[in-house]
Design a protein around this nucleic acid. Structure first.
Lengths: 116, 116
DNA sequence: ACATACTACTATGCGTGTCAAAGTAATTTA
DNA sequence: TAAATTACTTTGACACGCATAGTAGTATGT
């Protein structure tokens, strides 16, 4: 039985996942990674390198801005914030997933999946 | 609204899609491509180069065998046949998708999707 | 005091899958 | 006889995810 999600199944979803988590409040790398582990109940782990690649890509696209936290103790943390552009992007990506899901189902199983 | 499925959303599914179609009967490149277009109602098109890459990969993995059809007219056609290994692979990949789907849902929307 | 583990961020370079583009070749339609 | 369609193939580029390695501060245990 599958216990971990293959990287090719997750591909294309990482941006959406990160945006979705950050939309619920500004956060930083390690916390986002943790949240992913929680949400997936341990079935998916966002690789660190991947995570920071995602951050950089999303910043380049104007979906995120970052700022250093003012921690007086502990390691420095870079916080990421979703911009309006990022919110729109998230909405589009969620819609794209909802759209693609039943089609993939049809292609893979040959059966129609009802829409909500 | 999304009209076409992005390549990164389909990534990792192409092998499964091709296996699923071939499992319903031996077929050849062009026909498989057509079937994909039909099943997705025009929302997804398997690029030719991708399709032949998939065939070659699946053959390398022992999931498919091929043979030339004995057409007395029309272009020559190379038929692909799913092996037992291929059937097992298909079953695994289908299971992996059913497993991953609700987790991706959870990661993207933050809501739990019920299992069947 | 020193080792170990954990938090936190960054850089480099590789493997894989998909695809664009171009090509070959036969058949069918106009 | 030109154009469109069927059918298969090769080459090379690109993006994404990830393995690996590194820097650095903090916390805990002995």
């Amino acid at each position: 039985m599958a216990e971990v999600i293959s990287k090719d199944l997750i591909r294309g979803h990482t941006d959406t996942i990160v945006l979705n988590i950050l939309q619920q409040g500004d956060s930083y790398g390690y916390q986002v990674a943790k949240r992913v582990r929680e949400l997936s109940q341990g079935h998916y782990e966002l690789n660190e390198a991947t995570l920071y690649t995602v951050f950089r890509r999303l910043e380049k696209n104007g979906a995120l801005t970052d700022y250093w936290g003012d921690e007086t103790q502990g390691s420095r943390r870079k916080y990421y914030h979703v911009t309006t552009t990022g919110q729109e992007m998230l909405a589009e990506k969620k819609a794209a997933w909802q759209f693609a899901k039943p089609i993939i189902d049809e292609l893979i199983t040959g059966q129609i999946t009802e829409e909500d």
